[in-house]
Simulated assay, not measured.
Amino acid sequence: MGSTETSTGGQVSDLPPIRRFITTHDDATGKAKLYSQDEGQWQSLRNASVAFNVAYTTTGFPPSLNDDADITAYKETMASGDLGLVNPNGTVCRYVDFGPGSHPVMHRTQSLDYGILLEGSIEMMLDSGEVHTLRRGDVAVQRATMHAWRNPSDTEWARMIFMLQDCQPIKVGGTLLEEDIRNATEVPASRKDH
């Protein structure tokens, strides 16, 4: 595995830049207003063949939006540097850019994930050996299963956006299936309680 590099705003892919718009309320009028607009931070992994950009994360469900408590919690979580793939008891909205021919990493998160392909094509690989190709606009609903993502293109980048929601522990056939990211060594574990 390659080193982890973090860049502010800068991304490694040639895909269009993203912008994040966070809204809030005006205390005096109660009307909506823009809190911030930016490109977020990209974190490059595996020798810049994959990159993450966390659009937002919450630390509780349902989150409190009062007095911008969720924004404060988001900033604290991101500053801590220990956000795993999943935020326990919360949600994570993350962009992922996959480089041409990027090496797939088999993993499982203890979460319910919606993965929507925005650009390019992606192969969803399951530990059963099944491989399914997603095209622009397709959604994968990952339910705490072992899986990997592979960009089959030799020349084009692919981009997905993932919405991860923590879930209750999952048992299959009486066996507890926990988070398994041992092959994703650059990503911190999501759970501190196991």
Score class of each variant (00 low, 15 high):
residue 91 T to N: 12
residue 110 Q to L: 08
residue 86 V to R: 00
residue 86 V to M: 06
residue 168 Q to M: 12
residue 61 F to A: 14
residue 175 T to M: 09
residue 183 N to Y: 06
residue 43 Q to E: 14
residue 119 E to G: 00
residue 20 R to V: 13
residue 119 E to Y: 08
residue 129 G to R: 06
residue 160 M to L: 13
residue 98 F to R: 05
residue 108 R to I: 07
residue 169 P to E: 03
residue 68 D to G: 01
residue 31 K to E: 12
residue 96 V to Y: 05
residue 160 M to E: 03
residue 155 T to M: 08
residue 7 S to V: 14
residue 188 P to D: 05
residue 13 S to Y: 02
residue 49 S to V: 04
residue 38 D to Y: 04
residue 13 S to K: 02
residue 116 I to Y: 02
residue 131 V to I: 15
residue 70 D to A: 11
residue 187 V to W: 05
residue 167 C to I: 13
residue 51 A to S: 15
residue 162 F to T: 01
residue 25 H to G: 05
residue 38 D to T: 04
residue 4 T to Y: 08
residue 114 Y to I: 08
residue 46 R to L: 09
residue 186 E to S: 12
residue 59 T to E: 01
residue 71 I to H: 06
residue 35 Y to C: 05
residue 13 S to C: 02
residue 117 L to Q: 00
residue 111 S to F: 03
residue 130 E to D: 15
residue 71 I to V: 14
residue 93 C to Q: 13
residue 186 E to D: 15
residue 149 W to Y: 14
residue 111 S to I: 04
residue 138 D to M: 05
residue 88 P to Q: 02
residue 178 E to V: 11
residue 118 L to F: 00
residue 194 H to A: 14
residue 174 G to Q: 02
residue 32 A to M: 11
residue 142 Q to G: 03
residue 145 T to F: 01
residue 8 T to E: 14
residue 103 H to I: 13
residue 51 A to C: 13
residue 22 I to S: 09
